[in-house]
Design a protein around this nucleic acid. Structure first.
Lengths: 345, 345
DNA sequence: GGGCTGAATTGAAACGTTGTAAATGAGCGT
DNA sequence: ACGCTCATTTACAACGTTTCAATTCAGCCC
């Protein structure tokens, strides 16, 4: 208790405190910490005991300042409440753990200002590298961050220029898969549900959808777009209300949603509004999160290799951090379609 | 580009570099950063320009070392893939943002060793405080961490001793609510599905379940326990297989799951096995995550005020960090039951 | 005993930032 | 010209850790 009191007054124990108590110099304490082979066993034990007695905890700031690199990676996620991103994070986390690094997750909540502030904070902490799923991969601060030398990998977006490493999935292809599937089932009035347009994912999936639509020789006007302000369950619900409010003969017979959360919300609202899925409204989601299969009507969805994306992104990040001369690389995974009841008639 | 090259060779620009370029002393640069009113406008502008030119980024390590506190909080989550925890994290994040702090999320993945390592890392970084949903709130390292002076708030667990601040929900009461509801509906053979027992939540909810069972004067043996190795969707599915394999006349007519992920998995497997919900098997979940309402059969669930828990936890943490003489406090929220179709006959 | 080897330890400098106390010097009244 | 004030700027000493060159000294051989 007196030890505790001392600490309250003097702050945490430092290497010097430990050294004094063990009757050695600070250098020896540091050696115990970093190159124990150099230290005689007797001293080593005395130092270790002193550390325990004083509750010594390395001061990472000082350590880092002196020269070492930090032992952390950061991942600025777009939406921590979306299981897709937590799964990606998990993949990255595994790789980090293998290398003895810690991964700190940050949630930008799809807000550019927050994203920027978080990246700044991570850079100030001199993390070893940063993964980011940006609100906009052309934001100047991403290029600046990379330009200043912090390794950076873009996740789930393909930057327009080749200035960054990135791991993504071919969203155009995903959109084409989804709508191609609906067209093949005979749907001739389809809605794309998603937003905001500032998200590249949202845009690309729509591009793919339009592509499939064109390929089938259908009228552009019959591929309707219902914009949402975000990509959560609640946004899907309100899109569902809008959809249910349309007159039957003008209403789309199928909806392709920009992600599964929206699709689940839409599904839920369709149920409440008395629309049968898939008879009155077929639904395709995107991401194939675990909940898609467990939904009211199991959801057809475009699957992305989430864990693998996270792992690859982390590996690329570490590679970029190690190599002197680094060649940026864009890895693009291929999505596939998982057909379930929500589109089976 | 030549500037970039210089940085590659010499590392990031420091206050001294900025000072040299702006033709002032390091102290003035520091003043621009921390007390701009003191600096003459002309110098201020020159310094600011120099910072831009050199791509100066504060070195948080040095800053912290010199005396300031860190500007970050940490939250060591039990399972980042569980929306319950990300919602709690969101609540905490909002409070952190209000105070200009950043919240770093870490995922212990329900592994004691990882939890310990992450807490150590956060302590080494001298974060301002730590939120943690521990695998076991009696782990010695929690007490040690707090003993060394890092503010600590336990989330979603009530520690057995009053040594920490904590924010939790009355899990016993939640379990009692759930099973009380099932009993009132006439169920006389009920299964509790959850695990591992090392999780206090799992234990307490079972205690509550047993309490309700007793209160109804039912035989203890008819409240069956199906243990899972974890609390994910997959664990619910395998529990469902076990349940469906039982002979009809011995099979429980209702299941109370330790969380919604398990309940969703169970629901899914029940569907696949041809058990109708709720007719053949009623299901109650726990947490009332967004997906519960969107499930195959909308899920009856015990609701916890997730966002509010996160907000409260963060506020308590900051309070503990500010106050000299701190009185630990246990806040306990009251859960309520949301009845949906999965238990309505 | 003198000189050598090698293991173990030490002292001091450096990392980048900040607060403090001291310095500078312009403007002003006498 | 002198002393004074006030705004602005500066030099310098910390913070805790690590590294490197320098030092100590026990043991050994000739």
């Amino acid at each position: 208790m007196t030890e505790a009191l001392r600490r309250v007054i003097h702050g945490q124990a430092s290497v010097k405190d430990v050294a004094r108590r063990a009757g050695v110099s600070a250098g020896t304490v540091s050696n115990v910490l970093n190159r124990p082979q150099l230290v005689h066993e007797v001293s080593r034990r005395r130092v270790e005991q002193a550390m325990v007695d004083l509750g010594f905890v390395r001061n990472e700031s000082a350590r880092q300042l002196r020269g070492g690199l930090s032992r952390t990676l950061g991942y600025v996620m777009l939406d921590a409440a979306n299981p897709f991103f937590t799964d990606v994070a998990n993949g990255a986390d595994h790789v980090a753990e293998e290398r003895g690094l810690s991964l700190f997750l940050c949630n930008s909540r799809n807000t550019a200002a927050r994203e920027r502030a978080l990246l700044r904070r991570l850079e100030e902490q001199r993390v070893q590298g940063v993964l980011v799923t940006p609100t906009d991969s052309d934001s100047p601060w991403l290029a600046e961050l990379a330009g200043r030398g912090t390794p950076l990998v873009i996740v789930d977006r393909t930057p327009t220029s080749g200035r960054f490493c990135s791991v993504s999935v071919d969203d155009v292809r995903g959109g084409r898969l989804a709508v191609g599937h609906l067209v093949a089932l005979g749907h001739r009035r389809v809605a794309y549900v998603g937003g905001p347009d500032s998200l590249g994912q949202v845009r690309d999936r729509l591009v793919g959808a339009r592509l499939a639509w064109q390929e089938a020789g259908l009228r552009a006007g019959d591929l309707r777009v219902i914009r949402t302000s975000d990509l959560g369950v609640a946004d899907g619900r309100s899109a569902g209300e809008r959809l249910a409010g349309l007159p039957r003969d003008g209403r789309p017979t199928a909806a392709f949603c920009a992600n599964d959360l929206v699709a689940l919300g839409l599904l839920q609202q369709a149920n409440l509004s008395g629309l049968r899925v898939p008879e009155d409204l077929a639904i395709v989601g995107y991401d194939d999160i675990d909940f898609a299969a467990a939904a009211a009507v199991p959801l057809t969805s475009v699957r992305q290799p989430r864990l693998e994306m996270g792992r690859t992104a982390a590996r690329m990040l570490l590679l970029e951090a190690e190599e002197d001369q680094h060649q940026h690389e864009q890895v693009e995974f291929v999505p596939d379609l998982v057909v379930r009841r929500s589109t089976k008639s």
